[in-house]
Design a binder for these strands. Structure first.
Lengths: 214, 214
DNA sequence: ACCTGAACACCGTTCAAGT
DNA sequence: ACCTGAACACCGTTCAAGT
C-alpha cells in the first residue's frame, strides 16, 4: 500500500496531475518534481509509470487530442463539419495553451491523434476530395488553426477591454512611433475598440473554407 | 583588456554567439552558460550586456525579424508583395526553427519587429484595404505562415526522400492501423511519393491571397 | 567598468538501496 | 513491484569580491 493509505499511483493519475499543472501554471511550471509533489510522491517514483518527460508530454498531448471534436463519418455537410472541427480546435487550444507548440511535433503520435487525423482525412475524401486535394485542404486548415492559436496564446487575458489596456502599456514603452504611422493606427484603434479574436478567427476560417472545393 | 587580448565583449557579440548556438544545436542547447563559453567568458559576465535570458531572446528574435523581407512602400502589385513577404518568412523561419514559437509572443517588440509590421500594414492600407480589412488580411496570412512553419519545424530533414523514410519508421511503430484506413493511405503515399513542403505552402498561400481583395 | 567564484534554488535522470 | 535518498550533470540568477 502507498504511504498514508492513498490509492495506488497510475499513469492516469500522473497524467491528470501534470495536465492540471500545465493548464494552471503554464508549461514552464511543469516539472517532474512538481508533478510528483502534486500526487504526493518523490520525483523518481514517476519513472515507474512514465518512461521520461518526453513520454509524459506524449501522454498529455494525446489527452488534448482526445478533447478535439473530430468530423463524424458520413457527415452530410463536409464544410460545416470542418468548421465545427476548427472551432473545437481553437477552444481546446485556448484551454491548453501550453499544447500549441507540441501537438504537431510529436514523434510518437498517440491513439487519439491517429483517430482525429483519420477522421479529418476521411471527411475530406468522402466529400469527394482527391488524395492530394485532401492533403492540401487539411494542411492549409491546420496551419491556419495552429498559427492562429499561437498568436492568441501570447495574450494572457480574455476580454477586449483588457487587451486594450495592454496595448496602451506596450505603446508607452516604445520611444518614438513616428516612423511607424501604420502601427500607430493599429495601436490606437486596438486600445479604443479592442480586438475580438473570435471574429478574427472566423474571418480567416471562412476565407479558407470558401476557397476549398473538391 | 579582456583575457588573452580578446576584443571586448559587446551585446552584439553575445547575440551573435547565441544565434549561432540556437541555429546549430537547437533551442534547448541555448543556455546562458553555453553562450558564455562560446564567447570565452563565464556565464555571469553576460549580465553586463544583457538584462537576463528573456532580454537575450528579445534580441535574437529582433535579429530574425531583421532578416524578413518587408513589402516596399508604394509597391505596384500588393498581392505579389505579400507573396514575396510570405515566402521570405518561410525561408527565414526554416533557417531559425527555434524562433517559430517566439516571434509572435514577444512582450517587448524590437525595432525590426515594428518596421516589419508597419510595412505590412502600410502595404495593405495603400492597396486600398480599410483598416479592419487590413487587420483581417494580415491576421489570416500570418496565422497561416506561422502555423505552416510550426508544422514544418518538426521535420529534421530537407528532402522528400528522407521524409518518406521517416514515415515508414513511424508507421512501423504503430501496432494496428486497420481502424485508420485514411491514415494508411496518407502514410503509404507519403512513403513512396514524399511530401513537398514548398508546393504545399504555395497552395495554401495562393488560396488565401485569392480570397483577399480590398 | 567589466569579469569572476561561490552560492542558491532549481532542473531531468540514474542507481543502489529499501519495503 | 513500487518507492526513496543520494548523487550527477546540468539550469538561471544574485552578490560580494576582485582587477
Amino acid at each position: 500500500m502507498s504511504p498514508r493509505g492513498r490509492e495506488p499511483l497510475t499513469r492516469e493519475r500522473v497524467l491528470g496531475a501534470a495536465l492540471e499543472l500545465a493548464d494552471g501554471g503554464g508549461f514552464e511550471s511543469l516539472s517532474m518534481r512538481k508533478v510528483a509533489a502534486a500526487v504526493g510522491v518523490e520525483a523518481m517514483s514517476l519513472y515507474n509509470h512514465v518512461a521520461n518527460k518526453e513520454d509524459l508530454l506524449d501522454g498529455l498531448v494525446d489527452i488534448v487530442f482526445g478533447e478535439l471534436e473530430a468530423p463524424e463519418p458520413g457527415a452530410a455537410d463536409w464544410k460545416d463539419a470542418l468548421r465545427r472541427r476548427a472551432h473545437s480546435m481553437r477552444d481546446v487550444l485556448n484551454r491548453h495553451r501550453w499544447a500549441v507548440g507540441l501537438m504537431e511535433s510529436r514523434v510518437a503520435p498517440g491513439p487519439e491523434n491517429l483517430r482525429f487525423h483519420n477522421a479529418t482525412m476521411g471527411c475530406l475524401r468522402e466529400a469527394g476530395f482527391g488524395f492530394r486535394e485532401a492533403v492540401h485542404a487539411s494542411s492549409v486548415l491546420d496551419a491556419y488553426i495552429y498559427g492562429f492559436a499561437l498568436q492568441e496564446r501570447s495574450l494572457p487575458f480574455d476580454t477586449p477591454e483588457e487587451h486594450g489596456a495592454v496595448i496602451e502599456v506596450k505603446q508607452a514603452a516604445i520611444p518614438d512611433m513616428t516612423p511607424f504611422p501604420y502601427l500607430v493606427e493599429v495601436m490606437t484603434e486596438m486600445a479604443t475598440a479592442g480586438y475580438d479574436y473570435a471574429t478574427e478567427f472566423a474571418f480567416g476560417l471562412e476565407l479558407i473554407l470558401a476557397g476549398l472545393e473538391p
